[in-house]
Amino acid sequence: MTADASSLYNAGTAALDRGNIGEAIALLSAAKRIDPRAPDVRRNLAIAERSVAAARGETPPPMPGGGPAIALSAAEGWWLAAILLALGAVAGIVALLEGGRRGGRRSRAWKRGAAAALTSGALLAAWLSAGAIFERRHPEAVVVAASVEARRGVDEAPRSPILLRAGERVRTGQTHGDDVEVLLGGSPIGWVPRAALWNVADAPRYTRGLRSK
Protein backbone atom coordinates (compact mmCIF):
# COMPACT_ATOMS: atom_id res chain seq x y z
CA MET A 1 0.00 0.00 0.00
CA THR A 2 1.79 3.12 -1.20
CA ALA A 3 1.12 6.64 -0.03
CA ASP A 4 2.44 10.14 -0.33
CA ALA A 5 4.68 11.01 2.63
CA SER A 6 3.28 14.54 2.66
CA SER A 7 -0.29 13.34 3.08
CA LEU A 8 0.75 11.13 6.01
CA TYR A 9 2.73 13.99 7.51
CA ASN A 10 -0.12 16.45 7.16
CA ALA A 11 -2.60 14.01 8.68
CA GLY A 12 -0.24 13.32 11.58
CA THR A 13 0.36 17.03 12.16
CA ALA A 14 -3.37 17.65 12.20
CA ALA A 15 -3.84 14.86 14.74
CA LEU A 16 -1.06 16.38 16.83
CA ASP A 17 -2.85 19.73 16.76
CA ARG A 18 -6.06 18.06 17.88
CA GLY A 19 -4.28 16.33 20.78
CA ASN A 20 -4.74 12.83 19.36
CA ILE A 21 -1.24 11.76 20.24
CA GLY A 22 -1.73 8.11 19.33
CA GLU A 23 -2.97 8.86 15.83
CA ALA A 24 -0.25 11.46 15.36
CA ILE A 25 2.50 9.01 16.28
CA ALA A 26 1.10 6.31 14.02
CA LEU A 27 0.79 8.61 10.99
CA LEU A 28 4.09 10.40 11.51
CA SER A 29 5.88 7.09 12.04
CA ALA A 30 4.51 5.91 8.71
CA ALA A 31 5.65 9.16 7.08
CA LYS A 32 9.09 8.69 8.59
CA ARG A 33 9.30 5.19 7.18
CA ILE A 34 8.82 6.66 3.69
CA ASP A 35 10.78 9.90 4.11
CA PRO A 36 13.17 9.32 7.02
CA ARG A 37 15.36 12.35 6.40
CA ALA A 38 12.59 14.95 6.34
CA PRO A 39 13.26 17.39 9.23
CA ASP A 40 9.59 18.36 9.65
CA VAL A 41 8.52 14.74 10.03
CA ARG A 42 11.24 14.06 12.57
CA ARG A 43 10.42 17.20 14.50
CA ASN A 44 6.68 16.62 14.82
CA LEU A 45 7.19 12.94 15.66
CA ALA A 46 9.64 13.91 18.40
CA ILE A 47 7.11 16.39 19.80
CA ALA A 48 4.47 13.68 19.96
CA GLU A 49 6.83 11.17 21.57
CA ARG A 50 7.97 13.73 24.12
CA SER A 51 4.34 14.25 25.02
CA VAL A 52 3.88 10.54 25.66
CA ALA A 53 7.05 10.32 27.72
CA ALA A 54 6.05 13.32 29.79
CA ALA A 55 2.59 11.88 30.42
CA ARG A 56 4.18 8.66 31.66
CA GLY A 57 6.49 10.57 33.96
CA GLU A 58 9.57 9.61 32.00
CA THR A 59 12.37 11.81 30.77
CA PRO A 60 11.33 13.15 27.36
CA PRO A 61 13.63 12.21 24.47
CA PRO A 62 15.66 15.10 23.02
CA MET A 63 14.42 16.99 20.01
CA PRO A 64 16.18 16.09 16.75
CA GLY A 65 19.06 18.34 15.76
CA GLY A 66 18.93 20.69 12.82
CA GLY A 67 21.61 18.89 10.82
CA PRO A 68 20.97 16.52 7.96
CA ALA A 69 19.84 13.07 8.98
CA ILE A 70 21.64 10.03 7.67
CA ALA A 71 18.94 7.48 7.29
CA LEU A 72 17.53 5.29 4.58
CA SER A 73 13.99 4.17 4.20
CA ALA A 74 13.34 0.48 3.79
CA ALA A 75 12.54 0.98 0.12
CA GLU A 76 15.80 2.83 -0.43
CA GLY A 77 17.63 0.07 1.33
CA TRP A 78 16.01 -2.51 -0.91
CA TRP A 79 16.94 -0.52 -4.01
CA LEU A 80 20.51 -0.20 -2.78
CA ALA A 81 20.70 -3.94 -2.23
CA ALA A 82 19.26 -4.60 -5.70
CA ILE A 83 21.74 -2.23 -7.35
CA LEU A 84 24.63 -3.85 -5.51
CA LEU A 85 23.45 -7.26 -6.66
CA ALA A 86 23.07 -6.00 -10.26
CA LEU A 87 26.55 -4.50 -10.25
CA GLY A 88 27.92 -7.69 -8.81
CA ALA A 89 26.18 -9.72 -11.48
CA VAL A 90 27.56 -7.53 -14.26
CA ALA A 91 31.05 -7.72 -12.83
CA GLY A 92 30.71 -11.46 -12.45
CA ILE A 93 29.62 -11.91 -16.05
CA VAL A 94 32.53 -9.80 -17.22
CA ALA A 95 34.88 -11.86 -15.06
CA LEU A 96 33.51 -15.05 -16.62
CA LEU A 97 34.02 -13.70 -20.10
CA GLU A 98 37.51 -12.50 -19.26
CA GLY A 99 38.31 -15.85 -17.74
CA GLY A 100 37.15 -17.60 -20.93
CA ARG A 101 39.55 -15.46 -22.90
CA ARG A 102 42.37 -16.05 -20.36
CA GLY A 103 42.22 -12.46 -19.12
CA GLY A 104 44.62 -12.93 -16.19
CA ARG A 105 44.93 -9.92 -13.91
CA ARG A 106 41.93 -8.10 -15.31
CA SER A 107 39.77 -11.17 -14.75
CA ARG A 108 40.80 -11.37 -11.10
CA ALA A 109 39.98 -7.68 -10.56
CA TRP A 110 36.52 -8.20 -12.00
CA LYS A 111 36.04 -11.25 -9.81
CA ARG A 112 36.97 -9.33 -6.66
CA GLY A 113 34.66 -6.48 -7.53
CA ALA A 114 31.84 -8.90 -8.21
CA ALA A 115 32.38 -10.72 -4.92
CA ALA A 116 32.40 -7.47 -2.92
CA ALA A 117 29.24 -6.14 -4.54
CA LEU A 118 27.38 -9.43 -4.32
CA THR A 119 28.34 -9.99 -0.65
CA SER A 120 27.36 -6.51 0.50
CA GLY A 121 24.14 -6.65 -1.50
CA ALA A 122 23.24 -10.06 -0.12
CA LEU A 123 23.97 -9.02 3.47
CA LEU A 124 21.90 -5.87 3.12
CA ALA A 125 19.05 -7.84 1.58
CA ALA A 126 19.21 -10.43 4.37
CA TRP A 127 19.07 -7.72 7.05
CA LEU A 128 16.14 -6.03 5.37
CA SER A 129 14.40 -9.37 4.92
CA ALA A 130 14.74 -10.16 8.63
CA GLY A 131 13.16 -6.82 9.49
CA ALA A 132 10.37 -7.33 6.99
CA ILE A 133 9.64 -10.84 8.24
CA PHE A 134 9.52 -9.64 11.86
CA GLU A 135 7.25 -6.79 10.85
CA ARG A 136 5.03 -9.25 9.00
CA ARG A 137 4.77 -11.52 12.05
CA HIS A 138 4.55 -8.78 14.69
CA PRO A 139 3.46 -5.52 13.07
CA GLU A 140 4.31 -2.34 14.91
CA ALA A 141 1.23 -0.59 16.24
CA VAL A 142 0.44 2.49 18.26
CA VAL A 143 -2.23 2.82 20.94
CA VAL A 144 -4.78 5.36 19.75
CA ALA A 145 -7.33 4.96 22.55
CA ALA A 146 -6.91 7.27 25.54
CA SER A 147 -6.12 4.22 27.67
CA VAL A 148 -6.72 0.56 27.18
CA GLU A 149 -6.30 -2.39 29.48
CA ALA A 150 -4.22 -5.34 28.30
CA ARG A 151 -6.33 -8.19 29.64
CA ARG A 152 -5.11 -11.69 30.24
CA GLY A 153 -6.25 -14.46 27.96
CA VAL A 154 -8.81 -17.07 28.89
CA ASP A 155 -6.27 -19.77 29.67
CA GLU A 156 -3.57 -17.51 31.04
CA ALA A 157 -2.55 -17.22 34.67
CA PRO A 158 -3.91 -14.25 36.64
CA ARG A 159 -1.73 -11.19 36.60
CA SER A 160 -2.00 -7.51 37.24
CA PRO A 161 -3.74 -5.57 34.49
CA ILE A 162 -1.47 -3.45 32.35
CA LEU A 163 -2.78 -0.13 31.19
CA LEU A 164 -1.58 1.18 27.85
CA ARG A 165 -1.92 4.86 27.13
CA ALA A 166 -2.31 6.75 23.89
CA GLY A 167 0.88 6.91 21.89
CA GLU A 168 2.58 3.83 23.31
CA ARG A 169 4.28 1.72 20.66
CA VAL A 170 3.65 -2.01 20.85
CA ARG A 171 4.00 -5.07 18.65
CA THR A 172 1.00 -7.18 17.89
CA GLY A 173 0.75 -10.94 17.65
CA GLN A 174 -2.04 -13.33 16.93
CA THR A 175 -5.63 -12.24 16.78
CA HIS A 176 -8.71 -13.77 18.31
CA GLY A 177 -12.04 -12.33 17.33
CA ASP A 178 -11.90 -8.58 17.81
CA ASP A 179 -8.92 -8.82 20.13
CA VAL A 180 -5.27 -8.81 19.25
CA GLU A 181 -2.34 -9.95 21.35
CA VAL A 182 0.03 -7.20 22.44
CA LEU A 183 3.76 -7.60 22.99
CA LEU A 184 6.07 -5.24 24.83
CA GLY A 185 9.78 -5.87 24.65
CA GLY A 186 9.15 -9.15 22.88
CA SER A 187 6.92 -10.52 25.66
CA PRO A 188 3.16 -10.85 25.38
CA ILE A 189 1.40 -8.76 28.00
CA GLY A 190 -2.24 -9.34 27.16
CA TRP A 191 -5.06 -8.80 24.69
CA VAL A 192 -6.63 -5.52 23.63
CA PRO A 193 -9.44 -4.63 21.22
CA ARG A 194 -8.10 -4.25 17.71
CA ALA A 195 -9.83 -0.88 17.37
CA ALA A 196 -7.61 0.56 20.10
CA LEU A 197 -4.49 0.15 17.95
CA TRP A 198 -3.33 1.49 14.61
CA ASN A 199 -0.77 -0.46 12.62
CA VAL A 200 1.98 1.83 11.35
CA ALA A 201 2.20 -0.07 8.08
CA ASP A 202 -1.53 0.45 7.51
CA ALA A 203 -1.39 4.20 8.11
CA PRO A 204 -2.29 5.11 4.50
CA ARG A 205 -5.62 3.38 5.06
CA TYR A 206 -6.34 5.68 8.00
CA THR A 207 -5.52 8.79 5.98
CA ARG A 208 -8.06 7.69 3.38
CA GLY A 209 -10.54 7.31 6.20
CA LEU A 210 -9.75 10.80 7.41
CA ARG A 211 -10.24 12.24 3.95
CA SER A 212 -13.55 10.47 3.52
CA LYS A 213 -14.78 12.04 6.75
Partner: peptide, 9 residues
Protein backbone atom coordinates in the same frame (compact mmCIF):
# COMPACT_ATOMS: atom_id res chain seq x y z
CA UNK B 1 6.48 14.32 -1.05
CA UNK B 2 8.05 11.05 -2.02
CA UNK B 3 5.73 8.14 -2.50
CA UNK B 4 6.32 4.80 -0.93
CA UNK B 5 4.95 2.18 1.38
CA UNK B 6 5.40 2.14 5.14
CA UNK B 7 5.64 -1.61 4.85
CA UNK B 8 9.33 -2.57 5.08
CA UNK B 9 8.90 -5.25 2.40
Amino acid sequence: GPRGSPDPG
